[in-house]
Amino acid sequence: MSTTAFLTDSTLCIGCKACEVACKEWNGIPGDGFTFTGFSYDNTAGLGHSTWRHVKFIERGSAPTGADAGYRSNTFRWDFSSDVCKHCENAGCLEACPTGSIVRTEFGGVFIQPDVCNGCGYCVVACPFGVVDRRPDDGRAFKCTFCYDRQKAGLQPACAAACPTRSIQFGEIDDLRRRAGERIEELRARGIEDAAVYDPLETSVGGTHAMFIFRGDPADYNLPASPEVPTIHLRAGWQSAAAAAGLMLAGIAFAFGSLGERRGRSGRAAR
């Protein structure tokens, strides 16, 4: 059993949304609403409880003229990028989950056990990527399962299988990290200078099992530039809580001990 990962290479993505649909199909996800957004061709707008793969559409630049627009262009481009749960090495959702519903699988993915989740909603605010969400009518939290069921059966995830252009590559994590590096070299050599790997290794997230190659800034793709796992705040929080508790205890004890009225000494009027 190996530790697996995704490398989603946006420079190969044609925006067909096959990944998005294959995921919904495989996982039997209900409809996510019929809203016309006007955001290019993106009408599902983001990952959520009922969209576990999501394809972003970014129109950059204006007024393409001549024959100079296209995938290499710096004047006008339409970039597509398929987003997914990052399956963080240090996963905010997993750490936060009070029921132990969220677990790390043998493949390295982060998995919500649907029979355990009680819908407390804490993972929702614990994810630095805004991935997991509670489905209102169901009450439980949902996100990408990393196709745990398929991986168990020796299959690749449905989204990767559906991707016609190998934009979504699935494989062994170290292998993919290496390939990501090579791909960046290759793209740079082709004059695509702003291509970058997104795999927050330097932050407390400690890397992800869903890496991306895209052009431009993470913010363009609605991704945090330097995501942190919220557990980094625990120490400060508990220190403050301890201080608060100490103050409370001391203050209240002091108040009663030295200022308070003993029985007999004063006393409250009977009700």
Binding site: G15, C16, P64, A67, A69, G70, Y71, F80
Partner: peptide
């Protein structure tokens, strides 16, 4: 890859050259 099309489509986005 060359795409000649009245509009810039997903195909144009993947091409080296597009002209409307």
């Amino acid at each position: 890859i060359i795409h000649v099309d009245p509009r810039f489509s997903r195909t144009s986005a993947m091409a080296d050259m597009w002209v409307p």
